[in-house]
Amino acid sequence: MREMIIIIISAILVENFVLTKFLGICPFLGVSNNMSSAIGMSGAVIFVMTIASGVTWLVNEYLLVRFRLEYLQTIAFILVIAALVQFVEIVLRKISPPLYKSLGIYLPLITTNCAVLGVSLLNIEREYTFAKSLVFGCGAGIGFSLALLLFSSIREKLETCDIPKALRGLPITLIAAGLVSMAFFGFQGLFAK
């Protein structure tokens, strides 16, 4: 149990996928400009990451490892992730059209969100068990959401600031992202080995 808590906290803070591993920057910058779509995106990413961790673990363990096809990991995982994202998209379109609209292109882009693939591959690399994979996936998703929500609130504040003309838009966003990332580096060594 203690190990699970360590995994989830380190996935959220110490190994935050966006801010310390720099994975999934595209949706991070794309959807963080307002809070409501950031919340929607967070939900979608947590869901996809958790399920993807589980399914890819199963696929790896019972199909790839058994037949010694580990070299097919990347392609098989991408297939799983793509199918999952499609599924989320179909469901979301049915149950929440406004959210579906506000996520727009970023929802299908989770498919190519390297953070999701990163979680799946890290699970295998670290030889996590099924339960640990799920927890790590969920934690990574929460970490992504935390970064996204923190950052979208920063960006909403930035909108009203008097920013030098040359830095308006993406430049100031990237600078702010760098600063937030530095803050997160402070968590390094929280769980000393």
């Binding site: 696929v59 199909l63 790839l64 037949f67 096809l69 097919l72 392609i75 098989a76 297939l79 799983v80 793509a82 199918a83 499609q86 599924f87 179909i90 469901v91």
Partner: peptide, 20 residues
């Protein structure tokens, strides 16, 4: 075997998605 596995996965997800 790899062809069957990847193809099978694709088919499985394809059918699942069209059903969904």
């Amino acid at each position: 075997i790899p062809i069957a596995i990847i193809g099978g996965l694709g088919l499985f997800f394809g059918v699942g998605l069209s059903f969904a």
